[in-house]
Design a protein around this nucleic acid. Structure first.
Lengths: 190, 190
DNA sequence: GCTTCGAAGTTTAGGTCTGAAGTCTTCAAG
DNA sequence: CTTGAAGACTTCAGACCTAAACTTCGAAGC
């Protein structure tokens, strides 16, 4: 209860986001029967993700592109040879609507990151390919990301990293079973 | 009449999102020198978060509100007595701009989830409070979330949950040090 | 060959967010 | 007083997304 007194006395400081532990304490106060163990895992996951996306956003901004655009480049590269996909396929991989994909491709073509052409053998289809510049920006973004990610995990030993990866994979498998439909209408990096 | 046969033939193996392991393999192929251990942790984190947000979104949709609105209710409840905050404070806690907060509060007032009044002692300030209905929806949303979260973690033993929480907390601390400024311009739950 | 259906993209209308430019209130100094 | 500066919120313009209507092409049935 010291904090209450201190807070009364130091009333002016800018009210920031509560810390993870403060938030868990508040949850306990407002809702008995909440497992703090579970809450810590879930809230930490969410906060971590927010911070990671902020970091990625700053990095891609240095390249003059957005996270969203980097995601498109990544999907094209990871698709492998010949590094071309249709808008519909891209939309499914990124978890957004075909309409959004159309707009995004518009912008990226204008910026010289990708190309758009009609499929000659089936003129309804469109093919999106990556340009040299797009590929270069993808690579540079990836380089920056790996530096950040290594820094993020630097406190964890090799064994711990393995354990963490295994546990997260288990959780992921469980939600994927519960959500067989391609869930993912949210902008996010991975 | 023919629909049964048509459905059997209509295989439509629509190209979906690559699995986590496929993605890691593709990364290795396109960029030597990437640590698969690190990549697995980071990608699993991101995918998990996406799935969790989809799940939360479905739950809040059942209540007739959005994730974003539920977040506001949560911030008000977790603030504690008297469950009132200014728009600026709310915006800082949720990680969005004051402009967005104004709009969000507009909608929520119209829906009867929160109240908005001017502070009599300082007429520049505005005070947002939670209504009975808002509080009820927060509680119901939390109940649904805890069921989902318990299900998500059901494969992990108590020890594993503790370990996982501890490791994630360590990662979080590290990014928070690297990003001392309140990072968080992204919609997300926690 | 024509017609109809379905698939792939695009267009349009509307919602929510950001960043920048107001508006209004308070406070301190002249 | 009154004037200027700072703070809190709102308004405005622009970006990007979703849902739904539309356009076009290709394929199957008659």
């Amino acid at each position: 209860m010291v904090s209450a007194i201190l807070r009364l006395m130091a009333d002016t400081p800018g009210p920031a986001e509560p810390s993870l532990e403060e938030q868990i304490a508040a949850y306990q106060r407002e809702f008995q029967g909440l497992d703090p163990q579970v809450e810590r895992v879930v809230s930490a996951l969410s906060r971590l993700n927010r911070r990671m996306n902020v970091a990625y956003g700053r990095q891609t901004a240095e390249l003059g592109i957005s996270n969203a655009e980097w995601e498109v480049l990544k999907a094209l590269v990871l698709a492998g040879e010949p590094y071309r996909l249709g808008p519909g396929d891209l939309a499914r991989r990124l978890g957004l609507t075909p309409a959004a994909m159309t707009h995004r491709i518009d912008r990226m073509v204008a910026e010289g990151l990708v190309t758009r052409e009609r499929d000659e053998s089936n003129r309804v289809r469109v093919i999106v390919g990556i340009t040299e510049e797009g590929r270069a920006k993808w690579l540079e973004g990836l380089r920056m990301a790996t530096v950040f990610e290594e820094e993020l995990l630097q406190d964890l030993s090799g064994d711990e990293r393995t354990q963490l990866g295994a546990m997260l994979t288990r959780l992921l498998r469980r939600v994927e079973e519960a959500q067989p439909d391609a869930g993912g209408r949210l902008t996010d990096l991975d």
